[in-house]
Design a protein around this nucleic acid. Structure first.
Lengths: 342, 342
DNA sequence: TTGTACGCGTTATCAG
DNA sequence: CTGATAACGCGTACAA
């Protein structure tokens, strides 16, 4: 076990003091060109590397940023984190990953440990709609930059980067209507979560704008997986008159719906148009590719990181930024009829 | 900006010394039950939380672990990291994410910064086959636990957790042969990378064991994406006699192959059986589901984390563990013929 | 230009 | 059982 060389080691070797070494290394204060070069050269020779932990203790900056997400192994969060890391890396920041698995206590735990680890900022997508505001306030009070992405909560002094879920829901529904759909089902996620509320609101609004009646019997609440989609599809098949459009807030349930319907002889998109949300890779790869809404995860991550950097570099000023990205409708076969009634 | 309360603050309040507070908080040395309770109570009241950075400086342990991967937004690495985080979290370790984007210089950079950040361990999947061994040796010499996962390099004193890629390649190929395939194409990745070499070796071995000749004209080298699959498929279509089986080292190229072949009227699996590798989610979701090899990413991550913990908790002993996980063949429609010739 | 002295928050060692 | 002191490695007023 070799010890790391410190500025003190260099100082001893050169018969100077550690302070001088520190100055020479940081190109900072006035220092003679001669000693600077000498110090830098010997530092290199001795394989000196700055101890970031000591620096963190001294300066209060750890150059670590905590990122809290429900899960990391999903396309969406994976992409967001990818972009965050890419944007933060050149600025010298490291990304610490925390998963909550949608457990509220985990969310609080993670925040606490991140604070104790002296992170310079916390970027998070809220898991639980009823998150303990005390913890959030703790972050804000400590003046640690906090930025929400995707799933946010409106809190004084906290920035956020989200997509316009309302617009996303509106656009999809509108597209289904343009394809001639008149009885459109909406498969919702947990209605306590804002993003799902918003998508649903977009759906309702689109119906209204097109003179279609809103029928709450056509709205289902599910978790995001294939089985749930199949379950809903069975309910649809049992209806007196089959719906002719489905807008699901999840690509996975959309897939389940499609699978179940097709197995029962329903033709897509001829009989029923189907659309999902999130633009999961498989939606594009399917033979019957699935219409979906892209959430620009890379852009979201990039923006989140940028807002953080802006904030951390201007600690005196209180910055509160609310960024809203526009969702992109990806029209694919599952909702594209050959003959469009004009 | 509220300051954090330190043990010193507590000491002042209680008219005792910081050392005593430290002892009381750590339940450690002999200390009177009375003061312990008093200290703990006031600590709670004053919202005291241990400053991990100071602890890290003092103890040399940061309770941070660096994880280096080419990219984080893929199903495989996302899942591995998910499992690593889950396994390490209860032990009090945080996961720092680094991406290399397959750039060798990035790999070296990341290692250096991680070392300076005083991480307690480095878990990595090697991007470049020609990685600078000096950097690796630097880690080993500093006695920082280093564990390779998935893509490894055989280095004295370094543990690794991988899957048996040879076996994976062997099993897939064997399955194709059992379906009656006689002219089997292999789509390889970068042959400089060990895992691809191994999969190819499994392919050759399976051919040999079944009395089929190896023909290097049937092996193609590609990157892992859909377009490359289409490109290869076009080459296959131009052959005098069409092959009747394709084993691709990538699910994405397998998908490209399938798309291109189907568009040219080739029937799968009747005319050609196709199989991929990695068990990407879409392989299961497709109508024509794609045979693939599961790499047990969750198990791999879990094992990697466990090996690290074992190593970090037994720093005196030199542990070198080589874990090899068995790949799971997922047989699906793309290589499952209705009528099997017996 | 350089050295001295100190503090960041914690724990370990040695007295008492 | 508790207090005093040093040390982890670094940066920085202040003094020289």
């Amino acid at each position: 076990m070799k010890k790391k060389t410190t500025i003190y080691d260099i100082a001893v070797k050169l018969n100077i003091t550690a302070a001088t070494v520190s100055r020479a290394l940081n190109n900072n204060s006035k220092i003679s060109e001669a000693t600077r070069e000498l110090v830098q050269k010997t530092a290199l020779k001795m394989n000196y590397e700055q101890n970031k932990v000591a620096l963190a203790l001294k300066s209060g900056k750890s150059y670590n940023v905590g990122v809290i997400v429900p899960r990391i192994d999903t396309t969406f969060f994976g992409s967001v984190i990818r972009a965050i890391e890419e944007e933060l890396y050149p600025a010298g920041y490291h990304v610490i990953i925390c998963q909550t698995h949608d457990i509220e206590s985990r969310e609080v735990e993670n925040i606490t440990t991140l604070i104790n680890a002296q992170v310079d900022g916390i970027l998070m997508s809220i898991s639980s709609p009823d998150i303990d505001l005390n913890v959030i306030n703790q972050i804000v009070k400590k003046n640690i930059p906090l930025i929400f992405f995707d799933r946010k909560k409106d809190i004084e002094g906290v920035s956020s980067v989200v997509i316009n879920d309302f617009e996303g829901g509106y656009k999809v529904t509108k597209q289904l209507i343009e394809q001639g759909c008149k009885k459109i089902v909406h498969i919702n996620g947990n209605p306590k979560i804002k993003i799902f509320q918003e998508r649903c609101r977009g759906y309702k609004h689109a119906l209204k704008d097109s003179g279609l009646a809103y029928d709450e019997k056509l709205v289902f609440e599910t978790k995001s997986n294939v089985e749930e989609g199949r379950r809903v599809a069975k309910l649809l098949l049992a209806m007196d008159t089959l719906p002719d459009g489905v807008f699901s807030s999840s690509d996975f349930t959309a897939l389940g719906v499609i699978q179940e319907l097709k197995e029962n002889g329903v033709k897509i998109p001829e009989d029923i148009c189907v659309a999902g949300f999130a633009n999961e890779p498989f939606t594009k790869f399917m033979e019957l590719s699935i219409t979906s809404v892209d959430q620009s995860p890379l852009e979201m991550g990039k923006m989140t990181a940028k807002v953080f950097l802006e904030q951390v570099n201007n600690k005196e000023i209180k910055i509160e930024k609310k960024v809203v990205l526009e969702p992109k409708l990806m029209i694919r076969k599952s909702s594209l009829r050959k003959v469009i009634s004009k």
